[in-house]
Write a protein that binds this DNA or RNA. Structure first.
Lengths: 343, 343
DNA sequence: TTCTCTACTGTGAACGCTCACAGAAGCATG
DNA sequence: CATGCTTCTGTGAGCGTTCACAGTAGAGAA
């Protein structure tokens, strides 16, 4: 009735067809497919030729059935999706991870766990072994999902440092604290002394570490820390605007602002402009992320680049190693100061 | 040696375990799993209870091996990824499609075909039957990939109207032309008569149709079409800024601008502001998309909403229908005018 | 020659599921 | 009582792989 539904897709060749074509056995073809150990060069060649001739592609389902591996991995995103999907960082990460996995011929399954229902469904899916491992992005500091997966024995790598102490979950993160230090030293080197900070939420690792870097450099320069110079936003543009207004009210004499995300920095620029402060002449502004927003704003933002390509590559590397039996690992990658017009 | 790699993941229960637990045969369990036809209520209940007790989850690989279906679908993105990933429309679409599929318990595989190599790899993967169908996003009007997949008999739905005439590929798109008409009528109703347009590329269906709507309404209102009032960008913010500058030079007397994307509209707002024109008093600005950018700009943009949630839901519906054996279909969805501060 | 070792190859048995088929039970009809 | 029909259930086969094992051939050593 429905048939194959797809007009004329014919039955694809199996390992059996290849074996016949090459004049060898299934076993030999399988060995060639899996690294070619213990196969004579002649057989090797014959099999490869037969594969080319038949257009054979391995049936992953059959393979998975017996190996127990799925040869695919999940990219799991928990919580506020609307927000995260607007976050350019997230998009870059997703893209880079997909590409890094593609290099290993591993498909990426996108899993969004917004509601509790979705969450349950996805946890069942994962723990049933339908993916070999999970790349986890969780905004949310104290997300229990990481622990749950870890306890279920699912190989897992988290993006960003987890807040919880003592967990043995792998993670890969940029060196937020050092990035903050770089930016602060840069601002100091420009002669600025009244440096404000628009931080992210302080219940996130990013918020904690960037603030720590800020304070550390001030202290090391012999400047005192003025709490009126510090406010927090939610990483979004609007909160940056609001933060800058508060800052201007509390400390009108500021001559620089270190903003913990480029998106918030855009808001800060808008607020400063409205207040009649010139950037960078009156107030220097430094961002964080080096997202497209940094180039889109005027003046273009000096910012700290998060090495998303390296972060994703490392996440994939660590995850595959873990699937291969190695222990969880933590990787911190260096950031880079990108100087542009705003400082 | 490596074992299961994952500490203590134990062998998951199979259909056999469930059958034993429920005191029925494998066949009966399978029938319950697949719709429950020809199963007595008693058996039905016993099986469901056993599934709950054992925590059974179907092994999709085993199922796929015999059904020939993979029960997963691919989300394929061809070309300029950097650009597309910055495009909020694309992100919303990806999110909505993932959710729409999740409702059917179908995982989404993200496939990025940037380079020729990736393209070949992905085509092989798809045509080998590793996905049941493909949701295609192609910026690029004359992309051969749609035709290739269609010819290979792969169920396929494209997002946005394809340019090529005569192809029988399914697609789902917003009614660009009607959206443009709505915006133009709105601008006319405000008394504006010198209305400029910053269009997208005219070799894309969106560019063609939005321009057609623009011209149609002007003609219908008895106004003549002034080519100096029409420029094209590339959907991006920067090109909107440039476009507005050209427009101001060519037709300084304009009193409104219809911009074919919100991102470009942001640029237009910036250019107008720099030129000392007040929005909306001197010049009214209308965007297109209703992306987050529309709310982030000041003044907030009046724009045409693309119903991304409905578009993705329809794409999924049409694709699943096609996989089920139905014929390709084309769906055009209505847009909606969202009035905000910029008009 | 005979034995051992290495390099290679083929074979049957799984993996967990679905599907076709054969049957059993219940009930109405001839 | 046989016959048909419907509704339900169990059974074997097989999907395309990999894996363990058994086996072969050839080289070198005794």
């Amino acid at each position: 009735m429905t048939m194959n539904a797809a007009g004329g897709r014919r039955r694809p060749p199996t390992i059996h067809d290849v074996a016949r074509e090459a004049g060898v056995s299934r076993g030999t073809v399988s060995r060639v497919l899996n690294g070619g150990h213990y196969v004579s060069p002649a057989a090797q060649e014959a099999v490869n030729a037969a594969i080319r001739r038949t257009g054979y592609v391995v049936n992953r389902h059959a393979r998975s059935l017996i190996t127990g591996r799925s040869d695919s991995i999940g990219f799991l995103l928990t919580e506020p999706q609307e927000k995260l999907f607007e976050d350019p960082n997230f998009n870059v990460l997703l893209r880079c991870c997909t590409q890094a996995l593609a290099a290993h011929d591993i498909p990426l399954l996108l899993m969004l766990a917004g509601t509790q229902d979705e969450r349950r469904r996805i946890m069942r899916y994962i723990t049933a072994g339908h993916v070999d491992g999970v790349l986890l992005v969780s905004s949310h500091s104290a997300d229990p999902v990481a622990e749950q997966l870890h306890e279920a024995g699912v190989p897992l790598v988290q993006c960003g440092k987890p807040m919880g102490r003592g967990t043995k979950v792998s993670y890969v993160a940029a060196d937020d604290r050092d990035g903050a230090r770089d930016m602060m030293r840069h601002l100091l080197s420009l002669g600025r002394r009244r440096i404000g900070m628009v931080n992210g939420p302080v219940d996130t690792p990013g918020g904690v570490d960037r603030l720590a870097g800020y304070k550390e450099v001030l202290t090391e320069a012999g400047l005192e820390i003025d709490e009126r110079l510090i406010v927090s936003g939610d990483w979004g543009r609007a909160s940056g605007e609001a933060g800058a207004e508060r800052l201007l009210a509390q400390a009108p004499d500021l001559d620089a602002v270190f903003v913990a995300s480029d998106l918030m920095a855009q808001g800060v620029l808008a607020a400063l402009q409205r207040a009649g402060r010139r950037v960078p002449q009156d107030v220097a502004v430094g961002g964080f992320d080096d997202s497209p927003a940094a180039l889109a704003s005027s003046p273009e933002l000096t910012t700290i680049r998060q090495p998303w390509d390296r972060i994703s590559a490392e996440m994939v590397r660590v995850l595959l190693a873990q699937i291969g039996g190695e222990d969880p690992a933590a990787v911190i990658l260096p950031t880079e100061l990108v100087k542009r017009e705003s400082t």
